[in-house]
């Protein structure tokens, strides 16, 4: 088990008064599925955007397998943003080719076979797909990379229960035991069974960082119940 991600005293301020991340310290090891949980506005997406180099921290630093966020780290990190950045006029095949050009670790055959299982033909344009199928395509593209760190921002928001099961089995099936998956969500009960560990974020601070079976052992309750308790207002 080696370290894949480290945040040291990570701080992000928006303007003078909004502190999105407040001196966050965090280490993630390889080979784990980790839930990044917190209510709206707790700093989840800010943290994820810093990891992916889309925001620069106001203080502190992030280290991804030895690299600061940048060209080298992006080769190692597969990122599913909370809203799609793909061009909707492109066909699925074009997007697959685009990913293959962009990422050395992308496995086009795997992506196409996963799409075939969903009966999504590569000739179709992205904009002709339903919302749920668009989200599945985005997830497939991300999981078809052979990355060291997968960062999934709200992968199950807005999908129906059957699609949720598809998302979860896709993550389990494609996750390789040497890589780490960081999943942000506020729909905890939907994914808590597949997590090794959870991070609870509140007002930009880490308030809990524990293995899920320890939580169940110690508190005698599900992660979802504990979450509701910690974030009661």
């Amino acid at each position: 088990m080696s370290e894949i991600l480290r945040c040291e005293n990570l701080t992000k301020k928006y303007g003078a008064h909004t502190v999105a991340l407040d001196g966050l310290n965090l280490t993630l090891d390889s080979g784990k599925i980790v839930g990044l949980l917190g209510p709206n506005g707790s700093g989840k997406t800010t943290l994820i955007k810093i990891i992916n180099g889309l925001l620069t921290p106001s203080g502190g630093r992030v280290v991804i397998d030895g690299y600061a966020p940048g060209v080298e780290s992006k080769k190692l990190v597969a990122y599913l943003p909370d809203n799609s950045y793909l061009n909707s006029w492109m066909t699925i095949q074009q997007i697959v080719d685009y990913f293959a050009d962009f990422y050395e670790d992308f496995r086009p055959d795997l992506a196409l076979s996963m799409l075939e299982r969903l009966d999504i033909r590569p000739q179709r344009r992205l904009k002709t797909l339903s919302k749920g199928n668009k989200e599945k395509v985005c997830l497939i593209l991300v999981m078809a990379r052979n990355a060291k760190l997968y960062v999934l921002d709200e992968p199950i928001a807005g999908v129906d229960p059957a699609a949720r099961d598809y998302v979860i089995s896709t993550i389990i099936n494609n996750y390789n035991p040497d890589s780490t998956v960081l999943i942000s969500t506020h729909l905890i009960s939907d994914i808590e069974e597949i997590l090794d560990r959870v991070l609870f974020l509140k007002n930009g601070r880490l308030v809990l960082d524990q293995s899920v079976d320890e939580i169940r052992q110690e508190h005698g309750k599900s992660v979802d119940e504990l979450f509701r308790e910690v974030f009661r207002w």
Binding site: I33, I172, N173, Y175, I194, D196
Partner: peptide, 14 residues
């Protein structure tokens, strides 16, 4: 391990 993980909907590490 992976088949059980998928069938039970749990983490392969578990």
């Amino acid at each position: 391990v992976r088949e059980v993980a998928v069938a039970a909907g749990v983490n392969p590490n578990t």
